[in-house]
Amino acid sequence: MEKLRLYIQIHQLKEQGFKIAAIARKLEISRNTVYKFLGMSFEEATDWVVSLGRRRRKLDRYQDHIVYWLR
């Protein structure tokens, strides 16, 4: 949800007339991130955020072993 909040903030600041560099500075993110979010529709951003939760990570298959070692 934090990513969607960021998406909304970027679009609000752009509508208020802020330039890309000013948005990046204000939100403490890179200009590339600002461009990426401005290039997305809300539906695309929502789909992207949902896909982040479903992604497999490299260490997922080793999770049981790592938890066992840590205990």
Rank of each mutant, 00 (worst) to 15 (best):
K14M: 12
F18T: 07
N32L: 07
L59D: 06
R55N: 10
V34Y: 05
I20G: 01
T46A: 12
I23F: 00
L6Y: 01
R71A: 10
V34G: 01
K58S: 13
G53W: 04
M40C: 00
T46N: 05
Y7W: 11
L70V: 09
R57P: 02
H65W: 15
I10C: 03
V50F: 04
G53D: 05
E15C: 09
R5C: 09
R56Y: 03
H65M: 13
R71E: 11
R54Q: 14
A22G: 09
K26N: 14
K3P: 01
A45I: 02
T33R: 06
K26G: 03
R5I: 11
Q63T: 13
Y62E: 09
N32F: 08
Y7Q: 01
Y68N: 11
Y35D: 02
L4C: 11
K19P: 00
G39P: 04
R61N: 08
V49F: 03
I66P: 13
E2I: 12
K36P: 01
Q16N: 14
M40D: 00
R55C: 06
K26L: 12
D60F: 10
R54K: 10
F42I: 10
E2K: 12
K26C: 05
V67W: 02
G39F: 02
L52N: 08
L59C: 08
D60K: 10
V49E: 09
D64K: 13
T33F: 00
R71H: 14
H11A: 03
H11T: 02
E43H: 04
L6Q: 10
A22R: 08
Q16E: 13
S30N: 12
L13T: 06
R25S: 14
Q9W: 09
R54V: 02
H65G: 03
R71Q: 13
V50M: 08
I66Y: 13
R56Q: 13
L27I: 06
K19N: 09
D64Y: 06
S51K: 14
E44G: 05
M40S: 03
N32V: 04
D64R: 08
Q63A: 15
L70N: 14
L59Y: 14
A45T: 07
V67G: 01
S41M: 03
L27S: 02
L38T: 02
A24C: 07
R71W: 05
Q16I: 05
